[in-house]
Design a protein around this nucleic acid. Structure first.
Lengths: 194, 194, 194, 194
DNA sequence: CATGAATGAGTATTCATTCAT
DNA sequence: AATGAATGAATACTCATTCAT
């Protein structure tokens, strides 16, 4: 009995997911250049040839990983946007972001490893800048509604802080006082203006 | 008649400097893995063989570049420490750091490109963490003297902010409102508490 | 449809054999250091990359060649041991060894080229000394059964003679009177003592 | 006061000797291909450039080493020829050769390391074959005078034995029973025929 | 005579990618 | 869909040799 088209689709989707997950983990752990396609295939439990049936180059894998990570982040952000009314989103938005950071270090680990490589920025950079801008825009909205005078500047400031905290945490997850930093951040930006 | 030892010393020092400068620029522009030893030699205007006469591996070049950048940063920080009394250093310290960032983007560009690569962190990481801690300690001192209640946490917070700002600026030097961010930073942390 | 495991095994075995044969011939003709991996691959009619798919370094090729040659010699010796009763083996053993020498000069050529290189002795030496000792032990047994008073010394003597003859023959195969030397050797050591 | 020509000549000769000695030792220890010209210069205590004033290539050094070793051997042989009447030379000739082997292992070590390398044989081979033939001729004379029926064959036989003994000794100087082997050799070939 | 800086062709090895089966 | 054999360009590094001083 040949498989139905639907079954094939599902198998394909699952296999792709396994490959992307392996690639993401390896990119995060060793960097893009240091990870070989053979590494990824082995980690995903399939042959090199088969992997090339799913992704036709290492670069396309890079895109897939990037999209995957970004989708996870989008989900997290969107979930907060959907459940909170405008103007009350900032605290939980920040909490959600850092919750994702601690629960899925690889996501952000991959992100940072990848995006700071000039060679990779050339490939992914534009997309990335857009998404950065979107999240910062989100911050700005909230800050504006909270009555901040210069919401754009504040958004840049807050966004820098967020990025800096993520980065410092990733460099030294054990000692960095992430929870307190987040709460301080929320206290500074998330509170209703008096 | 052979060259004098002094002459050789000078040639060596100059050539080393040229090589390190080329390596730094290329690492910053294209990343460590993507930069070939031949690239570096060509950019420095000399042969591969000669480069290996001065540095016996690509990794030792990495160390040299790292040390060079760190020395520049140290100089900048030390200059402020020497000219300002304890308790009044933070504003100018921050200004000096960001002044160095805009005037010598490659320094920090190299720093960021390099230190976020797991393969490189393995080589340079410890040294880097120490230096990070030293600068953060410097912040902490100032914040303590300024009467902050939790100077260590504040130092982590400020340091994250600084790192985040540097990173955001490097990602988009044209649009990022660096000057205003720095002044806001100083306003938040550098003023005497009322 | 992928090849079956058996098919792959066969391909692997054949390709390995071709590579080892090329390497042996070249090592014998030009020496280990002078032979490049590219030489070997080209002589074997395949790409450099493929050669590394089978042997992961030049040194592992050296081992493979060494093992191959030793296996041929072992076969030859073993064949005599199996077909002759103890005490009557020496004449045919010597004949078999020298028969192999003339029919497969490359085997011994490779052996001599390789084992006199200090850099190679460091790699292969121990194994080689063991095998040397084994063959000499074989000689000793026979000499003891033939009633020699100092069989160990005699074995050393005979073994030196064998090695010297091989070496001299390889240096000048045309003029060296190998057949007569061998018969003289047999006359001296192979006959029952009176 | 400039040096006289004679002084210069002497300095040159001494320096050449130092270089040749270093090269010989290193060739013997590590083989020709593995020894770098820089190695030799350093071991000889002078700069690469200066070494090239004395020998204009690595190959010419090879020749020099070869000639040097051969000259030592010649001296040894000649000394015996001069002090012993024809017909009574063999015992002491053999003793002298093996005495030189134990007292100056490097001489023969270099010899064997060098002459078994095909690449080197191509350079040195002819000269070497001639000298080999000369020494074997010397053996033949003695054997003829001693009344051997087939002196040429006997000479080949003895010469093979000598070479084999040297080789075995060099491979394992500690265990090889050199003294006994030599005496046995002399007993077999050196005695007056009854 | 003396130095060591400088060159560049050459070497072992890796790895993204293709392809026969 | 699946395998892994096969390719070859590219990479870090070495070393005999030359040359300005």
């Amino acid at each position: 009995m040949p498989r139905t088209t639907a079954q094939n689709e599902q198998i394909r989707a699952e296999t792709r997911a396994v490959i992307v997950a392996s690639a993401m983990r390896l990119f995060a752990q060793q960097g893009y250049a240091t990870t070989t396609t053979r590494n990824i295939a082995t980690a995903a439990g399939l042959s090199v040839g088969l992997m090339y049936h799913y992704f036709d180059s290492k670069e396309s894998l890079l895109h897939a990983v990037f999209d995957f990570v970004m989708a996870r982040i989008d989900e997290t952000v969107t979930a907060v946007l959907l459940t909170h009314p405008a103007g009350e989103r900032l605290p939980d938005l920040l909490r959600a972001i850092f919750e994702l950071l601690t629960s899925h270090q690889e996501f952000w680990g991959a992100m940072y490893t990848l995006r700071t490589q000039p060679a990779i920025t050339a490939v992914i950079g534009d997309d990335f800048r857009q998404r950065t801008a979107a999240l910062r825009g989100c911050f700005m909205d909230e800050l504006a509604r909270a009555g901040q005078e210069k919401p754009e500047l504040e958004a840049y400031y807050l966004y820098s802080l967020v990025e800096g905290a993520i980065q410092q945490y990733l460099l030294d997850p054990i000692n960095y006082p992430l929870a307190e930093i987040v709460e301080k951040m929320i206290a500074q930006f998330g509170g209703k203006p008096r």
